[in-house]
């Protein structure tokens, strides 16, 4: 089987504002009917703006937030609702890399101990063997071995993110989920970490779920990309098609909004979305994007579009097609 992870129509709803017992709570639909598969050794990138549900989707994939409905399979076996032993075994297979390395590290422990901790928890090796593994992993993420005795505050932002990465990789997981792994870093350091991730992925044959709001970085690291809007995937396809010929009007606007360094290719089409996304609590009927969409017609207000092939990508839109005014 080719897929390492399969999510079948997962949703995650949060009841909010249940102030009065006789009132039914409002429902925030953070993720609302998403099916994805992550193939072995590929990087699936997820892009979307804040509130699109990309981090919630990551939590569902990892089993950290059980889906309200739907199911996630890891190597064909369900991820949530399993017994403790299976759960622990699964933890070794999948790891999460957080956005804010300072928040993800314990300020009162040396980084060496924190990198070693997963080995201790899972009972791997004796102290000498563990120390040797820590040394090797430090080397793999290009950190000096002498840093193992330091505390997180003594390191720079880039070094801390390398520590977080080392800790995620030390159990040799099959899947790593990176949730905005470089957003807190400066541009020059961002590039170091992005290159390191790409290098480790190839060397270790990792499968990666890469979440970011930065389209330039997602395009750079991913093999396939899914674009999310208000809890749904609106378009998915391989990285080239998504960026060269997006078919969904939201993907087109999102890509066109990225400020680009000037290139010889001439001006890009400027598509500007009007207004802001509606609240994920009071979603409009039909297509969620229609309130900001220039192509919306009456069918968009009635029927929620499902993902279907359109041109080179899969699109959830009643009127897919190349951007209006875009160069062919």
């Amino acid at each position: 089987m080719n897929a390492l992870v399969e999510a079948h129509c997962v949703t995650r709803h949060y009841p909010i504002g249940k102030r009065w017992p006789w009132r039914s709570p409002q429902i925030l639909r953070a993720v609302d009917g998403v099916s994805i598969e992550i193939r072995r050794s590929e990087t699936l990138g997820i892009v979307g703006e804040s509130g699109s549900g990309k981090s919630t989707l990551a939590q569902i994939v990892l089993g950290l937030a059980p889906p309200t409905s739907g199911q996630v399979l890891f190597e064909g076996r369900p991820v949530s609702g399993v017994d403790t032993r299976t759960w622990r075994a699964l933890r070794r297979e999948m790891q999460l890399v957080f956005q804010d390395p300072l928040g993800a590290l314990n300020p009162r422990r040396t980084v060496g101990r924190q990198i070693e901790e997963p080995l201790v928890i899972h009972g791997v090796g004796n102290p000498q063997e563990r120390s040797a593994i820590v040394q090797r992993i430090l080397d793999a993420v290009h950190l000096k071995k002498s840093l193992a005795g330091r505390y997180p505050h003594e390191l720079s932002g880039g070094q801390r993110q390398r520590v977080v990465l080392a800790r995620a990789l030390i159990l040799e997981p099959k899947l790593i989920v990176c949730d905005e792994p470089v957003s807190a870093l400066d541009v020059s350091v961002q590039a170091q970490i992005v290159n390191l991730l790409a290098d480790l992925k190839t060397r270790l044959g990792l499968t990666m779920l890469f979440i970011s709001h930065d389209l330039r970085i997602v395009r750079y690291v991913s093999d396939r990309i899914a674009v999310m809007y208000l809890g749904r995937i609106v378009e998915t396809g391989d990285r080239r098609s998504i960026f060269s010929s997006p078919q969904h009007p939201y993907s087109q606007a999102l890509i066109s909004a990225v400020p680009e360094l000037r290139t010889s290719a001439g001006p890009r089409p400027r598509i500007r979305l009007q207004g802001e996304p509606p609240s994920p609590i009071f979603l409009p009927a039909g297509c969620r994007f229609r309130s900001r969409c220039g192509r919306a017609t009456s069918i968009c207000a009635e029927v929620e579009p499902e993902l279907a092939p359109a041109g080179p990508t899969m699109v959830a839109c009643h009127h897919p097609g190349p951007a209006i005014g875009a160069a062919a």
């Binding site: 720079s156 932002g157 880039g158 070094q159 400066d186 541009v187 020059s188 350091v189 961002q190 590039a191 170091q192 992005v194 290159n195 389209l215 330039r216 970085i217 395009r219 750079y220 960026f243 890509i255 990225v258 680009e260 360094l261 290139t263 290719a265």
Partner: peptide
């Protein structure tokens, strides 16, 4: 020049060349 090589673009696949070290 280093900064410009650190930023991926939407159009080309030129590999990133990070500036090593930190400020």
């Amino acid at each position: 020049r280093g900064l410009l090589h650190c930023i991926p673009t939407l159009e080309s696949d030129v590999p990133l060349r990070p500036i090593e070290g930190s400020v």
